[in-house]
Amino acid sequence: MSHELTLNGRLWVLREEDGLFGDIDTDMIYHNAHLAVTDVDKMGQYAFGNLAGYKDFAALAKPGDIVLAGENFGSGSSRQHAVDCFRALGVLAVAAKSFGAIYKRNAINSGFPIVELPGLPDSLFNHFSDAVLDLENGVLTSGGTTYQGLPMSTVARDIYIAGGLFEYAEKMNGGNSA
């Protein structure tokens, strides 16, 4: 897994009629029909399988893609599958205007980078453009445009660099000293 703090990839911009796709809940990301799957490698095929207009995402996504969405990405249930399905496809990160609370910590704990871009104008970045995502400072750059989001919290950064919560805990002597 990548522990790089700067990611280079292709921007996959999720849109609905009136702008960046908002309120994408965990059933749209990874439908509850496939919850019994426990093997991460088998989760990729279901990514966005229930998201209107993006049901073919899994077939079209490439390793190195960076997903960009609107408000409240990953609201809904606590399923880790909704994070793991992107890792399975080699998606590098998800950037969104905001995230559901449980989704946010699931991503952090599994060492999957997310970046919050509050107030991001809907048309600032173009679909399939090359992008640079500075995780630590929360900055997205693409097509000569830069947008400043929220920097990574210290705990998120430390867990990400360790490669996940358990790996981080090992470093911290089982977490009890933290």
Partner: peptide, 23 residues
């Protein structure tokens, strides 16, 4: 009370703790 993903919960089984950013 808080719903969390399996990684968090496994960690709580193992250590009795979770991290939380105070909202």
């Amino acid at each position: 009370g808080q719903g969390m993903g399996d990684v968090d919960i496994a960690y709580s089984f193992k250590t009795g703790k979770v991290w939380f950013q105070v909202p």
